[in-house]
């Protein structure tokens, strides 16, 4: 954990960054880059592409900093929106090709026993593959709601849709994920009892 409890807001850090404060660049990176990369990876299913998207999104944040008006919106909301737009650009460049799933996230600490770790990796792989089967907008909504834990109104702000539309997308997305994973319960270590 790199932030202290009384750490400045993202808004304040962005203003400090625009004023040439170098530590603000570091703190904003620690806070926002993992979110940008995480969402990009969940949406794209490819670590290299997600890495490019996260770096480009953060670059746009740095360039936008002098024009940022504190209090008008959340910095992270702005960043999520940029990330999703960049992901769409990547998808367009792929020209409808299948998503690559060569890389799946490595299990992080705490380290469970080897078998459990393998099973955890299998579950994350299964979740990512199921996510990649969802239509684009459903996947974005599910990732923001259930993995980033954002509220529906905030997701609506990011995706530029109504809260009801977000609810509909996440509900359909979850049903589709449930169907995609239904046949793999035993394989993923979920008991029927």
């Amino acid at each position: 954990m790199k932030d202290s409890p009384a750490a400045p807001t993202d808004d304040a850090l962005l203003v400090l960054f625009a004023n040439g404060e170098q530590d603000a660049a570091r703190t904003l990176t620690w806070r926002l880059a993992p979110r940008a990369f995480g969402v990009a990876f969940r949406v794209l299913g490819d670590r290299a592409e997600a890495e490019d998207v996260a770096q480009e999104a953060m670059m746009r944040l740095w360039r936008m900093a002098p024009d940022w008006q504190p209090g008008t919106a959340r910095v992270s909301t702005w960043l999520y929106r940029v990330v999703l737009n960049l992901c769409l650009d990547v998808k367009r460049r792929r020209r409808g090709g299948m998503a690559r799933l060569d890389d799946v996230p490595e299990p992080a600490d705490p380290q469970p026993a080897a078998v459990e770790r393998m099973q955890q990796g299998l579950r994350m792989d299964a979740l990512q593959r199921a996510l990649m089967q969802l239509p684009e907008r459903q996947r974005q909504a599910v990732v923001l709601r259930h993995l980033e834990e954002l509220s529906n109104p905030r997701i609506g702000e990011i995706m530029d849709i109504s809260t009801e539309a977000v609810e509909s997308l996440t509900a359909r997305g979850k049903r589709a994920l449930g169907r995609a994973l239904a046949g793999r319960r035993e394989e993923l270590g979920y008991s029927d009892g």
Binding site: A54, W62, P105, G178
Partner: peptide
């Protein structure tokens, strides 16, 4: 649904590690 919630929870807990060097590159850009 329960399995799905369990998966979501595990994914959130685990997070996704940043690739090596990405953090440094982003800071250098800034």
């Amino acid at each position: 649904v329960t399995d799905l919630e369990d998966l979501f929870q595990a994914a959130r807990r685990q997070g996704i590690a940043l690739p090596d060097g990405l953090e440094d590159r982003i800071i250098a850009d800034g």
